[in-house]
Structure formats: C-alpha cells, structure tokens
Design a binder for these strands. Structure first.
Lengths: 194, 194
DNA sequence: CGCTCAACTAGACATTGACTATTTTATAGA
DNA sequence: TCTATAAAATAGTCAATGTCTAGTTGAGCG
C-alpha cells in the first residue's frame, strides 16, 4: 500500500464526504465531479465507477441526508422525558440540520425528482416514519388523539420543512427558527403562543 | 420590420417566458441559456445584453415568481367575504402556484442565495407583506389578536411553504396539500382539525 | 442627415459531464 | 501458489455550456 495505491479503496465514501463539503460551501450548481476528483487526487473518470451520473451522486447525498436528519431527530426526541420537550427537541434538530446543511436540504426536497432510486425513497420514508413515531409518542403521552395523528404528522413535517426553508434562505435567523418551532408546537398542543 | 429584425425588441421578456416554460418542463439544471437563445432564434450571446449571468436570469425569474405568487394570493383572499374562507383561498392559491411552478418555487426559496439583487429582495418582501395583510385582516375579523400577528404570519408562511414543498416534491398529492392547508388554518383558528 | 449607443452577432476559450478503450490490482478458485 | 476474472481506476475524446471580447447593425435623437 504505497502512498498512492491504484485502488483508492474508499472512494465512494470519500467522494460523498467531499461532495457534502462542497455542497455546504459552494452550493449545488458549483459542485463539479471533476473538481471533486481533483481534490481527492483521482482521475476525472474515477467517480464513474461509483456513480454513473452526477445526479446519482446527488441522489446518494440526499439519501445520506435523510438518514442523518432522521437520526438527529430521533436523538433529539430521545434526549427528553417530558413529551412537549421531546417534541421541541426533535423540531430543533430539524432546524439545526437545515442551518448546517441548507443546500443539502434543498436537494432532499427538490421538486425536480424524476425517477428517484428506491434507496432514496426508502431513506425519505425513514425520516417520515421517525417523525411519525415522535408524534405517536404524543398519543401515549395523552396530548394527541390517535385519530388525528396522521394529519398532524404531515402538518408537523411540513411546518418544520417550511421553517427550515426560511432559515436556510436567511429569511429568518436560526434563533427565529427555534422560536417558530416553539410557536408551532404550542399551537399543536392547543396552547396560546404568546 | 422584416420577419427577423436585428433588434428583437422584446427579448428580455421573451427570454423570461421561455425560461419559465423550460423551468416547468425540464428543471433548473437543464435550463440552458444557449438553448433558450436557439429556441427564440437569436444568437447565443444575445441574452447577455439583458442578463449578465445565468444567475441573473434565474434571479429575474424568481422575482417574477414572488410577484405572481403575491398577486395570486391577494386575488384568492379578496375572492371571499368570510375571513376563514378568505384565509383558506389565500393558502390554496399558494399551493396551486407550487403545483404549477414547483421548480420556480425552489428557485425562489433556494438556500444558495448569495448577493440577491435589491429588486429580488423587494419582490420577496411584497409576497411577505401580502401574507401579512391577509393575517392582519384576521385581527379586524376578530379571530386573531394583534399581538400574535407577526409570529402567526411567519408561522403561516412557513407552513404554506412546507406544504408546497411536499406537494411539489410529490410527497403528497395536490388534494392532500389543500387538506393540509385546511388543517393548518383550523389549527390557527383554534378549532379541532377533524 | 449623421451620431451615438444599446442590442445583437460571431468567434474563441476553459470547463464540464459523459462515453470508451485500456491498464492495474484485488481476490477467489483450482 | 498460480491464474482467471472482474472491479476499480486511468487517459483520451467529444459535444455542450457559460462567459468573454471584438465587431456589426440599426433605432432614435439632436
């Protein structure tokens, strides 16, 4: 294993890591396969062994994003005992993720999503079912009714997504995003928001 | 004025119209300045007289989007007398716009927004103040309190944006989007959602 | 009638994504 | 241990794109 083995051995993962970084610092449009290869030190054709397309790499990024966001939300929710606190922590995890990975979130929820691979759909489903679990816990906690859970889950997801979009676009500051999540949860719990 | 005058005379507008169409049918990534020029029948350098950059054209598209969405919402809100109905119509206008212009909405709220021109910020502000007006009308209608309006406006905007993202991404059907807007409004008005 | 300047053309260039043929190397099986 | 095989990477090519520059056209104004 010299300093530059022919087989990189880990190229797929390194490509994704480097792409995630580029996404965070330069945006999607400026993300170039050739530049990634250059930075990593492989030939410009090397990425093709792992991603047939530029789109395939972006899909893989989105997939990792869904899984990372889901696990961040779960960790947030699990970090609190009291339900309202738990819900709040999950929501804040969403916004935190959006702040740290704004362009990635755009990619995950891009309207131009023709032919998403099954693995991407599965990852998205993982996120959605995580949120669903968090809401379901509210039934056991006695703050939500079973019958309304499905629609509340969708509404909560959409609300967090919208807040994240606003924060990611700089329309509201991160602190304002947390505030909005608080307000939303208060509304969901039927409490006055001020 | 022959069939092909040297000066197009209307190129800027035609470019934007054609770009809007391309956005709707092919997505942002596939939108090419040269292809637009080809379709319109001008040289590949012609667009540069009106848009210094590809990004400048996209910014102009987003600007038109903000104004169009704002006026659609206002028209929707004004089409009803009863406040809850008015609010609902405004929300539905948002979702309708998102369904018809998913990629454009992405563009309008893209996270990668470095150095947005003043006119774009102004257009975005027009949308936001339109939504603010719609919420403010709820105070006069006696369903909202003045003190909570600012935060409710933000929350309502974020919710509609989130719902639109879900609809645009195909995560929920358009009809489901309307349902979500209904649910959100019910929640805002303090009514049970089922 | 001629000036001027914005609008357009035409040509050039570097960069990119994608494709192909070829080379290297890890590994599994005899 | 040797060898077949296929995965992983290289290098070269191609069309397309965004951007830049120099030159051309013509509409409107004094």
């Amino acid at each position: 294993m010299s300093q530059r083995p022919f087989h990189h051995g880990n190229l797929r993962t390194v490509l994704l890591d480097q792409a995630e970084l580029a996404l965070r610092t330069k945006g999607v449009e400026e993300l170039s396969l050739r530049e990634l290869a250059r930075e990593i030190g492989v030939s410009h054709g090397a990425p093709r062994s792992h991603f047939i397309d530029r789109k395939a790499l972006l899909d893989a990024l989105a997939e990792r994003g869904f899984l990372a966001l889901a696990s961040a939300m779960r960790a947030g929710a699990d970090s609190r005992i009291e339900y309202a606190e738990s819900l709040r922590a999950a929501g804040q995890a969403y916004v935190d993720f959006a702040v740290a990975n704004a362009a990635l979130l755009d990619l995950m929820f891009a309207a131009t999503m023709d032919r998403p691979p099954a693995s991407l759909l599965a990852a998205a489903e993982t996120l959605f079912s995580t949120i669903s679990d968090v809401m379901q816990a509210g039934v056991e906690a006695g703050v939500f009714r079973e019958a309304e859970i499905e629609r509340l889950t969708l509404l909560m997801s959409a609300t967090m997504q919208g807040v994240s979009t606003f924060v990611g676009a700089g329309r509201v500051l991160p602190a304002g995003g947390d505030q909005l999540i608080d307000d939303a949860i208060a509304l969901f719990l039927g409490r006055p928001i001020e």
